[in-house]
């Protein structure tokens, strides 16, 4: 009985700590569904554990399953994305080059080695043409010809604050072999 009561209180506490869903979030996720606990993608060998207090969304069928979206606050979010790369792509650096090749994008600082969960990765921070700051961490699997990218989408006022949430997300990612 005590255990049941404890579980009930934990569930209520978790619900209380989640921010209410804004109209922006409802619109942004109108074709997605909330995923609780962990996102497990056997097809691409990707597991992402939920970040406490952050809602995680995945696409509804028939959409292909390429990753998950995490809403921090209005217009501030993170995603983990698995993408096929051309057969002539050889490195994470080339995938980063593609991110920076979007017209108007400006690199902030320099590229750095980082980790995407359990694997080594390349990290880059940049400003979009609209002046919005982004941070991406990219791992490239040459055998499978797939890139795994986690990105923080924030604004100038919250970038440093959101970076700590993003760091928590990076630690919750596990990349395994494809099925």
């Amino acid at each position: 009985m005590k255990t049941l009561l404890l579980v009930f209180m934990l569930v209520i506490s978790a619900a209380c700590f989640s921010a209410p869903i804004s109209n922006w979030e409802k619109q942004k996720t109108s074709h997605a569904q909330i995923r609780k606990g962990a996102y497990i993608n056997q097809h691409y060998g990707l597991v992402v554990q939920q970040v406490p207090g952050i809602r995680m969304y995945v696409d509804k069928p028939p959409a292909p399953n390429h990753g998950a979206l995490f809403i921090i606050a209005e217009k501030r979010m993170m995603d983990v994305f698995v993408s096929a790369e051309d057969p002539d792509t050889d490195s994470a650096a080339q995938v980063v080059d593609q991110l920076l090749a979007v017209p108007g994008t400006r690199l902030i600082g320099k590229r750095e080695p980082a980790r995407l969960g359990n694997v080594p990765a390349d990290q880059v921070a940049y400003l979009t043409a609209e002046g919005e700051p982004r941070r991406s961490v990219v791992y490239f699997d040459k055998t499978a010809q797939l890139s795994y990218t986690a990105t923080l989408y924030s604004d100038v006022a919250h970038f440093a604050e959101d970076a700590s949430v993003f760091a928590a997300l990076l630690q919750r990612i596990t990349i395994a072999h494809r099925d």
């Binding site: 942004k28 996720t29 109108s30 074709h31 997605a32 969304y57 995945v58 696409d59 028939p62 959409a63 292909p64 390429h66 990753g67 998950a68 979206l69 979010m77 995603d79 994305f81 993408s83 991110l99 979007v102 990218t149 990105t151 989408y153």
Partner: peptide, 12 residues
């Protein structure tokens, strides 16, 4: 359809 809504760079 929709093909993808959760990954902002999917269509890029």
């Amino acid at each position: 359809v929709p093909y993808n809504t959760v990954n902002p760079v999917y269509y890029i």
